[in-house]
Every structure is written in structure tokens, then in C-alpha cells.
Design a protein around this nucleic acid. Structure first.
Lengths: 261, 261
DNA sequence: CATTAGGTTCCATTTATCGAAACCAAGTTT
DNA sequence: AAACTTGGTTTCGATAAATGGAACCTAATG
């Protein structure tokens, strides 16, 4: 499945299977599910356990994801994503609009949520961070896709399933038809295309070179499209502010030079 | 470094190096830092980028952690850790005691924080989840170590650095000397052994079979030891409640059988 | 223009991976 | 209780893959 990339690729594939299983898995389940011959699968699992990417419960013989992943993710989140530096801007956006705010990046053709603020129920947090969603029918997803250069867009589109979640969900053609407008307006709408009753307004976070870094959105549960439309300005401003901070962050590039030697 | 575990182990090692670098790294930095010959390192990095465990900024040629890790961690956190089911108990504990509450697990000899609640400043959250700390001088760490069976304890101890953070920090002998008392009392103290002024009271989360699943703690910044001592009961109760929930969670074992075919 | 530092590709050698089959340990069935 | 499953672990020769020294590209830099 996908690009095996040698042993490492296979190991990651197995890891992914365990993850998508959603709970403790036995050896036999993974074996039947396809892919790898017994001995191979066995060794791959052993390596993954050794690396603490998986855990095995000696008693039941079931495999689970290892918490080492949580540690790595913490580092990824805090040093490689927009999240930490976007946080203050998101808080401002949430406060001004009073709506739920999302920050997302593209990952393998999907939208991956890196932060979420919900003025209504302040403590939820992590349950949302790391979650993924479809790119073709969410505000953040559409905002990012519309600004992707040809090749990258093609690659991203090839990974979309275009499942029809609601009557308003777009297909490939419909999605592409919107791109020009999104680029012109600088914002993307999700008008109940993913979940009935849920409307989002999103803006892309673009680097000065025009590269897509991520996207922010505000969400309304009541469906009030006009309500969100009134905030178009601040949504775009927030995305812009994040982009500016991101650029400023890169340039000084704290000198790692004089560390060695 | 450590157990190479074939190609996968090396790849993980490289990933870890990028992570511990704390920011964008160039190829040459990783190369000089040791370990792998040019061509090998090059190919390892390529594979990691393909797998989206790393990102490379084409412009600067620097490597960073990939957000795919965040997605995997979300799944690990929500399906393989105590965190989701512990949350309500932690909230209760935080509310009753008014202190900062931590939930942790052991990972590779270190303490890994899986959740944190801070009544004072409610929005901090993720910045703490995934963070690691020393096992030998934190409340949660000591609580877990004391209940580890011989072999596992030995392995964990061998990974401790026993750096002396404060005048109160214990060495190996001092740590072991406390174990009996911790087992008897069911709680472990960190009396400013990690950070001056910070005191913790922790209790281990143990399965019915006595296996160490994790630990919870309450923290006082003022140093008020008596203040925390008054909450000994509820800290132990919270750990117990989490353990009970964890046991209940495993047994029903939602039948995955009738999914295939 | 020459030199160097930083990356990328080649290719013969070595090594780890592959996977069929044998094996083992518990349960089940007859 | 003997025969038969079911689920997991180990062996081992053939095979494919990772290895790494060296050659090879670029840009920058002197």
C-alpha cells in the first residue's frame, strides 16, 4: 500500500495499521488484514516495539501505539508547526468573533488540526489537536488547496476521496471551480459541505513567497452565514498576522553556528 | 547510539536527532554530529521525508519534524494512554485541591506527561502534553519506579542520569531507600528535588495485577508540604479510580470480531 | 578563475530482509 | 486422552536491499 520506501516504509505502514485499528490488536488480526507474510510482520512488530513506537501487552499479546509518539509529537508541534506562534492571534480572533477557531495544516492530502479554541467550552483542547479531516470539504482545506501550485495540487487532489457527506459536498469539478474565487477573495467557505448545520469561514496562511503554510477558520454551528461574513476582515487579518510572525521567526534564525566546536 | 534495530532503528535515531536539535537542521549539521556516513544519512533523511516524518524546506535545505507525528500522537494519546479516561478524575482532583494536576506515564526511563490541569491558568494545555522529565526526582516518577518489578526497575534505573538539580535531589541509593516507604504509604513525594520551591505529592495508577500504568500528582508552588499532605486521601483515590476505569475499559473489549467478513 | 563547502549520485560489497516451512504451546473437538 | 485446530515464534538458504567510499555536481567564496 502506498510507497513502501524500504523497510522503514513498511514499518510505518504497520504502525499506521495499528493506529487505524483504533485499539489493541492481536498479531493475527494484522496478519489476516493483508500485506505481509507472517515472519516479516512478526519482525516488523518486534522492531516497532523495541523502538517504543508500539507497546505489547504481554498478557493479552495485543499491540497498541506507544506513548513515545506523544513525546515526538510534542516536539513536532512546538518547533515545526505554526501552532505556538499562532496561538495569541487565534485567541484574539476567538475573543472578537466569539466563534470556535481552528488552525490547520495539510498533511498527506488531509487537513490536520493543530489547534482549536472554543469560547463556549474552554477545556477540550487536545482531543482536537492531531485530528484529521477531509481537505475538499472543509473551510481550511479548501483555503489551502486553492493556493497550492499545480503539481502539489494535483498530488493533493489524487488523495481525496470526494465522499458526499452532505447534499452540499462538492465533487472534484465543483472544488476546482471555486478555486479562482477563493484566490480572489482570500477566503474559503464551507457551507455545510462536511456536516449539516456547520458553516466555516477560512483564510490561508501564506508565506511571503506565496507558499501555503496553513489556514485558520471560524465556525458557526447555527449556520449563520451572514454572521461569519461580517468577520471576513479579521479572519484574513489573523491569517496575515500569523504569516508575518512566521516570516519574522525564520529570518533571525537564532545562530546555531557557534554551538559546535 | 542505543539499539540500532536495523534500518528502522537508524531512521528513528536520525528522527530523534532532528527532534532534539530543537529547530530546522541542515544536512551538514546532522552529518558532522556523528553517526552515519554521508550517503547513508542522506538516504535515511530521504526516506523520513517521504514518510512525512520530516519536512524539508526546499529553499533553505533544512529539515524539521513533520506534522504527521502530531496525527499519530493524537491516536496514541486517545487510544493507548490513560489520558482520555483519566480526564474527569483529574478535573475532580484539581477542583477539590485547587492545585495543578499532572498525569504521567513512563517512557524509556523518563516521565512523560500525558495531561495537565492548572486551575490558575486554564489555557496552557498542549504545551505540557508530551513533555518529558526525569523519573528519579519527580513525584510521578518516584511513585512509578517504586512499584516496578525488579527487572524493569533495573532497566529504568540504568537510564537515569541522577543529575543533581537541587540540594534535595536524591542519588541512586537515596532513591532506592525511599521505595519501601513509597510502597507502604502508596504515595511519593517530590520535596523540591527537581525544582526549588516546587513540591509534589503523587500516587501510582496500578492495574489489578499490580502493573504500573501511570501516576497522578498534585503540585504546590509555595512549597506548602502540609497543604498537600492534607490531600493524600483524594490523590490516592483518584489514582485508584483511574485504575478501576482502566480495568473496566479493557474487559468488555468491544467485539472487533464481526467486522471482517 | 580556483577553491571549498554542501549536497547528490554511483556501484561493487556486505548485510539484512524475505518467507516457506518447521516448530511450539494452548485450547478445542472427537 | 489422542487428534486437531488456532495463534504465535523460530530457522535458514535465497534474495533483495542497505551500505559507504568515492566520484560528481553545483553554488557560494576567496
Amino acid at each position: 500500500m502506498a510507497a513502501p520506501d524500504g523497510t522503514v516504509g513498511k514499518a510505518m505502514d504497520v504502525l499506521e495499521r495499528v493506529a487505524s485499528y483504533g485499539g489493541p490488536v492481536r498479531f493475527a488480526d494484522l496478519l489476516s488484514e493483508g500485506g505481509y507474510p507472517k515472519a516479516t510482520l512478526y519482525r516488523l512488530l518486534q522492531v516497532l516495539v523495541n523502538q517504543r513506537l508500539l507497546t505489547i501487552d504481554r498478557a493479552t499479546g495485543k499491540y497498541e501505539l506507544g506513548v513515545r509518539l506523544v513525546r515526538l509529537a510534542h516536539q513536532a508541534w512546538s518547533q515545526a508547526s505554526l501552532a505556538p506562534l499562532a496561538r495569541p492571534h487565534l485567541e484574539h480572533l476567538a475573543q472578537v468573533t466569539g466563534q470556535a477557531v481552528h488552525l490547520a495544516q495539510l498533511d498527506g492530502g488531509q487537513v490536520l488540526y493543530l489547534d482549536k479554541l472554543n469560547p463556549a467550552q474552554p477545556v477540550e483542547m487536545f482531543s482536537a489537536i492531531g485530528r484529521v479531516g477531509p481537505a475538499y470539504c472543509t473551510g481550511v482545506g479548501k483555503a489551502m488547496l486553492a493556493f497550492l501550485p499545480g503539481e502539489a495540487l494535483e498530488s493533493a487532489l489524487s488523495q481525496q476521496s470526494f465522499h458526499r457527506f452532505t447534499p452540499a459536498t462538492l465533487d472534484r469539478a465543483g472544488l476546482l471551480a471555486e478555486h479562482e474565487a477563493i484566490r480572489r477573495e482570500g477566503v474559503a467557505w464551507d457551507r455545510q459541505e462536511h456536516e449539516p448545520g456547520i458553516t466555516c469561514l477560512a483564510a490561508p496562511v501564506l508565506s511571503d513567497a506565496g507558499r501555503v503554510l496553513g489556514a485558520v477558520s471560524i465556525t458557526s454551528a447555527g449556520g449563520g452565514e451572514a454572521l461569519l461574513a461580517a468577520h471576513t476582515g479579521i479572519v484574513k487579518d489573523t491569517a496575515g498576522a500569523i504569516a508575518r510572525d512566521a516570516a519574522a521567526w525564520r529570518f533571525p534564525e537564532q545562530s546555531k553556528l557557534n554551538v559546535a566546536e
